[in-house]
Design a protein around this nucleic acid. Structure first.
Length: 678
DNA sequence: TTCGGTGGG
């Protein structure tokens, strides 16, 4: 027999044969339940094959007759595309033909498409055009247990649509045992909910089907006594695993970049000081702020004889799956957003994880063989954890959601059938802001065209207002850029360890006296004139290339929307402009920003901190802002965020006090709390 | 004097 190496002669199958997946045994049962009940709730662990197989079962069973299609939603873009590619491969078609996907900026579907994967946010937007989602015979909402805002809103819409479309089939898929909540939601009518919860449960509407998972057993260990410092404890645990346990990679859950950097440094110090027993580590960081290139390193196999240790934020809980993890170390905390409706401030605080999260994290250890999970908290602590975290919709600014619901024709946003109703103060705050922006009239009805257009633009309400007033300030092209540059959460600037000063020098090259918005405009202009051609431009200037190309796409999309509204978007050719013209242009941009961001105004105090208009809150310029450590008087800002014991404002631009009154006379006149303005 | 979990259009 000829000699061959196992490694080079065999290519591992990318996907397990579908017939071997647990879901295959449930095919007939699933088809029967879906046929019989309008709503099916599928409980299936990762690896059960539900996402890839159920749509194919349905298609073959004839659910795409009459040209209708099967829609499968995902909470994340990357999931929608990868699952579509896999299913297209199994079906044996090119992606975009019978099987396709649709995410923002990428519609890979055609008239032949029968199974379509898409983000839940995008399906909500489809409902703006087609309120009954009439193209779909079946809609499967995957990963519903994550309870993202979009998923929750979508489920509310589907419940409403179902009454008008008895033929529609809804499948809710959930990895944990929160299925009862979904069952209650679909079987109890909203009227019934208002009176007695149990009285009006509708029989025969929804049914739960539980699929067997295919994960390996995981040993879960808790601390005997609580720890004071979980970062130190995590590092000790990693070294204990290394010396006492068999081979296998380690995944450590921490809460943020700072902790991850600390852990990375501690490991490399120990490795350099310690003896042989500490050798052989490959430590890697993982968090969203890294460039995608850096994130990819966590998928590399550790060099022979070395053990991979990934220090990660919550991104590894659901968004990024690393195979080969045998040990999980869970610090027991996660940073979660909270919203204070009185101040309008979102905070980011480390919070104990939920039981659902803890078991999801533990499950990351058993994907390829039996694993172990070390929890850095006691078993008592575990029993005291909440079953699930507060759904996002109950801890976020609701202005974007209210605007979207109004545009979907849901006038009474308070009585909308939410899976979990948001607190009423959140609702009033959102209505107040939308009214002052002119998106709602005094009866809280959506205004036309302004409110409707704001809802259609894929940016936050304050920025949408700014963009729609830009033509009257003669700065539409600039505002398109600024909107695009501020509408993705993160920063365009990034740096590796020790390069922070160099990054700050690069950033200063684009600085504008007026503040951060004009600085972003300068950076974008430089990118489209030089950066697109020269590969080195981004690298040399510490700019994230991927983020910049994203900004280019967002800008183009916003421009198309405005064209559809009949706005003239033709760019005034940048003829040579003199100093005074540039100043005037900059002033118009600042006035325009004030027209949308008047509610985010602040004044610098003699000590360099900022005070809000009501005068009851002290805020600091974020160190990433140009106005950090610089003099200013009145400013508007894009974002305010509280971390630890300080409140920071980000993306700040200088304005004149008088512009605030011009932009929102009622907002400033009616309230006697706005002390500092006449 | 110095910071930010994760998503989506």
């Amino acid at each position: 027999m000829a000699e061959f190496s196992l490694d080079s002669s065999f290519i591992p199958a990318l996907h397990k044969p579908a017939a071997l997946l647990p879901v295959a045994r449930y095919r007939d049962q699933l088809l029967y339940v879906i046929e019989t009940f309008p709503v099916t709730i599928v409980i299936g662990q990762t690896g059960s094959g539900k996402t890839t197989q159920i749509p194919q079962f349905l298609e073959r069973a004839g659910w795409c007759a009459d040209g209708k299609i099967i829609g499968v939603t995902q909470p994340r873009r990357v999931a929608a595309t990868t699952v579509a590619l896999r299913v297209a491969d199994e079906v044996g078609c090119e992606v975009g033909k019978e099987v396709g996907y649709s995410i923002r900026f990428e519609d890979v579907t055609s008239s032949a498409t029968r199974i379509k994967f898409l983000t839940d946010g995008l399906l909500i937007r489809e409902a703006l055009v087609d309120p009954l989602l009439s193209r779909y015979s079946v809609i499967m909402v995957d990963e519903a247990h994550e309870r993202s805002i979009s998923t929750d809103i979508l489920l509310g819409l589907l419940k409403k649509i179902r009454r008008k479309r008895p033929d529609l089939r809804i499948i809710i898929s959930s990895a944990t045992l929160q299925a009862e909540d979904f069952l209650d939601f679909f079987t109890i009518s909203s009227e019934g909910k208002a009176t007695t919860r149990t009285a009006d449960a509708e029989e025969g509407v929804a049914k739960i089907v539980s699929l067997e998972g295919r994960t390996f057993p995981i040993d879960i260990l808790h601390l005997a006594a609580p720890t004071e410092n979980y970062v130190d404890k995590a590092i000790d645990t990693v070294f204990d695993i290394h010396t006492h346990e068999g081979p296998g990679d380690i995944l450590v859950f921490l809460t943020g970049r700072e902790e991850i950097d600390t852990a990375m440094r501690a490991v490399s110090e120990k490795v350099s000081q310690g003896g042989d027993q500490y050798a052989g580590f490959q430590a890697l960081p993982l968090y969203a702020g890294l460039s995608s290139e850096e994130q990819m390193h966590v998928f590399d196999k550790a060099p022979e004889g070395r053990r991979k240790v990934v220090f990660s934020t919550n991104i590894a809980e659901a968004s990024i799956t690393i195979d080969g993890i045998v040990f999980v170390v869970d610090c027991g905390f996660v940073k979660l957003r909270a919203y204070n409706p009185r101040t309008g401030i979102e905070t980011l605080t480390a919070t104990p994880v939920s039981k659902a999260s803890a078991s999801q994290r533990a499950g990351r250890a058993g994907r390829t063989k039996p694993g172990k999970c070390f929890r850095l908290f006691t078993e008592d602590d575990f029993h005291n954890l909440p079953e699930a975290n507060t759904p996002e919709i109950q801890r976020s600014n609701l202005a974007p959601i209210v605007l979207q619901l109004k545009a979907l024709g849901i006038d009474n946003v308070v009585r909308f059938d939410y899976l979990s109703s948001p607190p009423s103060e959140f609702m009033s705050k959102a209505l107040e802001l939308l009214y002052s922006l002119g998106a709602l009239d005094e009866y809280a009805k959506l205004t036309r065209p302004l409110g409707l257009r704001m809802a259609e633009l894929a940016v936050e309400p304050m920025m949408a207002k700014t963009l729609l007033s830009a033509p009257s300030y003669g700065c539409l092209s600039e505002m398109l850029t600024i909107s695009a540059m501020t509408s993705f959460g993160g920063s365009i600037w990034f740096y590796h360890d020790g390069e922070q000063k160099a990054m700050e020098r690069s950033r200063r090259k684009f600085a504008a006296d007026e503040g951060d918005h004009l600085t972003l405009l300068n950076a974008y202009s430089a990118f489209v004139t030089k950066g697109k051609k020269e590969a080195r431009f981004c690298h040399e200037n510490h700019i994230n290339y991927k983020t910049m190309t994203q900004a280019v796409s967002i800008r183009a999309q916003l421009k198309r929307y405005l064209e559809r509204f009949g706005v003239d978007t033709s760019e005034s050719l940048a003829s040579h402009q003199g100093e005074s013209e540039l100043k005037l242009k900059a002033e118009n941009i600042r006035r325009c920003l004030t027209s949308g961001y008047f509610a985010h105004a602040a004044r610098m105090q003699p000590d360099g901190t900022f005070r809000n208009v009501e005068g009851d809150m002290t805020m600091h310029a974020h160190p990433s802002s140009l106005l950090f450590n610089r003099k200013a008087d009145w400013v508007i800002f894009h974002e305010v965020m509280e971390t630890g014991d300080k409140t920071f404002i980000r993306d700040i631009t200088k304005i004149e006090k008088g512009w605030l009154l011009e932009a929102a006379p009622e907002f400033y006149k009616l309230s006697d709390k706005r002390a500092e303005l006449p």
